Simulated scan of single mutants.
Amino acid sequence: MRSLEIHAVRDLRLAEREIVPPGPGQVRIAVEYGGICGSDLGYWKHGGTGTALMRHPFVLGHEISGRVAELGEGVTGLAVGQGVTVHPARTHGELPERLAGRENLHPQLTYFGSAQHEPHTDGAFAESVTVDADQVVPLPEGLSTRRAVLAEPLGVAMHAVSRAGDVTGQHVLVSGCGPVGLLVVLAARAAGARRITAVDLSEVARERALTLGADVAAESPDDLDEESTVAFEAAGVAPSLEGILRNAARASVVVQVGNLPTTPVQVTLAALVTREIDYRGTFRFVDEIERAVELLATTPEAEQVISDEFPLDQAEAAFEAAAGRGSSKVVLTIA
Rank of each mutant, 00 (worst) to 15 (best):
I289E: 10
A15F: 05
G123T: 03
G113E: 07
Q256S: 12
V230A: 06
E242N: 06
N247H: 14
A8L: 00
L224V: 11
T110Y: 03
K329M: 10
P22I: 05
E127T: 11
P24S: 12
S307Y: 15
A187Q: 14
V86H: 06
H159A: 11
H106G: 03
K329D: 10
A251C: 12
R98Q: 13
I306S: 07
A231E: 11
V174K: 01
L109R: 14
A115T: 07
L260C: 02
E118F: 10
V20G: 00
L154R: 06
R147C: 02
L312N: 02
G165R: 04
V286F: 04
R98H: 14
I19R: 04
T51F: 04
V237Y: 02
V80G: 00
V167Y: 00
E18V: 06
Y33G: 12
A205T: 05
G35T: 03
I6N: 01
R98M: 10
L78F: 10
G25V: 11
V286G: 05
Y279K: 02
A238T: 00
Y33H: 15
V330S: 03
L4F: 08
I277E: 02
T229H: 15
T91F: 02
P239E: 04
S220A: 10
R17S: 13
H120Y: 02
G23D: 09
D200G: 04
L183K: 13
R194G: 12
V253Y: 07
D11I: 15
A79F: 09
V136H: 12
V199Y: 01
H106Y: 07
L312D: 00
H7T: 11
P140D: 04
V156K: 01
V129W: 04
R206Q: 05
A297M: 08
R146L: 13
D278F: 02
P261L: 02
T282K: 01
E276F: 09
G326R: 13
E32T: 09
T91Y: 04
A238I: 00
S162W: 03
L4P: 00
P153Y: 13
R2K: 14
S220H: 13
P153L: 15
V253N: 06
A231D: 01
G77D: 03
A193W: 07
L295D: 10
P221F: 15
M158P: 01
T49C: 10
T299Y: 15
H56F: 03
G23A: 11
L296A: 09
L78G: 15
P239K: 01
A188E: 14
P21D: 03
A248G: 12
I196H: 03
V286N: 14
G181A: 11
T121L: 05
A193P: 02
V59N: 03
K45N: 12
R146P: 01
A30S: 11
R208C: 05
G176H: 04
G243R: 07
R291W: 05
D200R: 11
A302C: 10
R163K: 12
R28T: 06
Q170N: 08
V267A: 14
G236H: 02
T121K: 08
V27D: 10
V68L: 05
I277N: 01
L332G: 01
P261W: 02
P261N: 01
L245N: 11
V331F: 08
G243L: 09
L182V: 09
E219R: 10
S202Q: 12
F283Q: 09
G23N: 11
V185N: 05
